[in-house]
Design a binder for these strands. Structure first.
Length: 314
DNA sequence: CGTGGCCCCTGTGGGC
DNA sequence: TGCCCACAGGGGCCAC
């Protein structure tokens, strides 16, 4: 996602921006906040210097120091609609269509010809970046300066692409929570969600209901290594598209076809052939193999196989 | 403080 | 065909 957005907007100047729904901005906009302040928050007038990523959110960084955090939530999309017919996905990619009904913000990107300031931006329109999100769990977060960006990053745990067993062990060794829920906590580990938590725990052979305090150091090493491996493989495949996700070019990800447990409750384990369990752990639907992810010490007697109701896979 | 529960939203698919 | 319920890549807030 970061790469596709960067490829489209870095070097562009934000000529204009429009916020159709104020409630997607965090922190919440006070009622008296006006157009000028909103446009400042949406980087109007600035040249895009870079697109970074902090955990699950993108940070669009402007040359003047402003930043804008974009979190897609569950159904969000950040699409680039190129001017003059070359719409997002028009090339080798997908066929993404901008969902007008749920377009909550849009930015007009113009070519940066070096003429800036004085309120008017010269140069032709390159296209529009649009933020769509039917469920509106996604959010936009204006970040005034580098310090605000640093503050955001400081609230998050180590990044999923570089996490180590030592880091997880240090954060969780005394915790009474189930490991699954802990991996979803962005203060513990930044970037892993429900799909990849299940996939990484399966790959590591660790039962999602095990309590953190009972995990051995070697198990933290295995979990960290598998988090890195799963995330790396998923990114190479363009992510997991279940329904809505596409990159800025409208291209869907291919990793869902390679999920080994997520979405496969009730189906056969690809390793041992047993039936995969499905249940709720840490308030989220969780799928695991009771054989490959056996609880040795025991979570509690009788809970080894775990899952309550089995759901047929998609 | 750490945790679990509940809520926020809309769309979709299955069962009846 | 239509209605209702359950569920969905996330996270914030609250009470305990």
């Amino acid at each position: 996602m970061r790469r596709s957005v960067a490829g489209r907007v870095v070097g562009c100047v934000v000529g204009a921006a429009e916020l159709a729904r104020r409630d997607i901005v965090r922190p919440r906009l006070a009622v008296w906040v006006g157009r000028a302040e909103i446009e400042r928050g949406l980087l109007v007038g600035a040249r895009i210097a870079a697109v970074e990523r902090v955990g699950k959110q993108l940070i669009i960084v402007a040359e003047d120091g402003r930043g804008l955090g974009v979190h897609l939530g569950m159904t969000g999309q950040l699409l680039f609609d190129a001017a003059g017919g070359g719409a997002a996905g028009g090339g080798a990619g997908g066929v993404a269509r901008v969902d007008r009904k749920h377009t909550h913000a849009r930015w007009t990107m113009v070519r940066d010809d070096g003429v800036r300031g004085a309120g008017s931006v010269k140069g032709g329109v390159v296209g529009e970046m649009v933020f769509c999100d039917p469920r509106r769990f996604g959010k936009l977060r204006p970040l005034g300066d580098a310090a605000a960006r640093a503050e955001l990053a400081a609230r998050l745990g180590p990044d999923a692409l570089a996490v180590t067993g030592e880091q997880l062990h240090a954060a969780l060794a005394k915790s009474q929570r189930a490991i699954k829920g802990a991996l979803l906590d962005q203060r513990v580990l930044a970037g892993v969600g429900n799909i990849y938590a299940d996939e990484a725990l399966f790959a590591a052979g660790v039962n999602p209901r095990r309590l953190c305090v009972r995990l051995r150091r070697g198990e933290y090493d295995a979990i960290a290594a598998e988090v890195v491996a799963v995330m790396t493989a998923a990114i190479s495949a363009g992510g997991s598209t279940l329904r809505d996700y596409v990159d800025a070019d409208g291209k869907a990800g291919e990793f869902a076809a390679r999920h080994r447990v997520y979405g496969r409750g009730g189906l056969a384990c690809v390793v041992c052939g047993g039936t995969l369990n499905a249940g709720v752990v840490g308030q989220r639907t969780t799928v695991w193999c009771g054989v490959c992810q056996r609880v040795r010490g025991g979570v509690r007697a009788g809970e080894q196989g775990g899952g309550r109701k089995l759901r047929m896979g998609e």
